[in-house]
Amino acid sequence: MAGMEWDFTGARERITAREWPADSPRWVALLAHGYGEHIGRYEYVADTLLRHGAVVYGPDHLGHGKSGGDRVLVHDFEEIVADLHTVEEHARERHPGLPVVLIGHSMGGMIAARYAQHHGDGLAALVLSGPVLGPWGAITALLGVEEIPDDPIDTATLSRDPAVGEAYAADPLVWHGPFKPTTVKAFDRCLSAIAGGGRLGALPTLWVHGEADELVPLRETRIGIEQIRGDDLTEILYPDARHEVFNETNKDEVLADVTTFATRHVGG
Rank of each mutant, 00 (worst) to 15 (best):
G268T: 14
S129G: 12
E37R: 02
H119P: 02
V254D: 03
F77E: 05
V81F: 05
W136V: 10
L206Q: 05
A2T: 13
C190L: 13
T259Q: 01
G36P: 00
H38E: 02
L233D: 05
V174Y: 02
E253P: 00
A156I: 03
G122K: 02
K180S: 00
R264D: 11
V145I: 13
V266R: 06
Y115Q: 01
G134E: 07
L215V: 14
V72F: 08
P25F: 05
R41N: 11
T9I: 07
E146H: 11
A29Q: 01
G122P: 03
A163R: 14
G268C: 12
R71A: 15
R189F: 01
F187H: 02
Y238E: 04
R160I: 02
G130Y: 04
R14Q: 15
A212W: 01
R41Q: 13
A193D: 14
V216Q: 04
G198V: 05
E166L: 12
D240F: 11
A22G: 10
T157H: 07
H61T: 12
S106Q: 08
D23Y: 00
A202M: 01
A195I: 02
T182R: 13
E253R: 14
L50P: 03
A141M: 14
E211K: 13
R264C: 00
S24L: 04
V55W: 13
F261M: 09
L50K: 09
H52K: 10
A138T: 12
D60A: 08
P59D: 12
E19F: 04
A167E: 15
R92H: 03
G65M: 10
D154L: 08
A138D: 10
G109C: 08
A241L: 07
F8Q: 07
P135C: 05
G198D: 04
T48D: 12
H209M: 04
G97A: 05
G134M: 02
G197C: 06
I148S: 08
T183E: 09
T249A: 06
L173S: 09
L143I: 14
G201C: 06
H64F: 07
S129E: 15
H265T: 12
A262H: 03
P96K: 06
G69S: 10
L173Y: 14
F8K: 09
A202D: 15
G10K: 03
D60G: 11
F8M: 06
P239K: 11
R94S: 09
W136F: 15
R18S: 06
H118P: 00
D232F: 01
F261P: 11
E211F: 05
E5K: 13
D188K: 07
R14T: 14
L173D: 14
P239Q: 04
L191S: 05
L203R: 12
V81I: 15
L237G: 02
R14I: 02
M4F: 00
P162M: 06
R114Y: 01
V258T: 09
D154F: 03
A125Q: 06
A256H: 14
V145A: 05
L237F: 13
K185E: 15
T48F: 09
D257F: 08
R94L: 15
L73E: 14
L98T: 03
G40E: 14
T249D: 10
P59I: 09
I194S: 00
Y238S: 03
P131G: 07
G109M: 11
A186K: 07
L84D: 06
L237V: 04
I39H: 07
Y35E: 10
R229F: 00
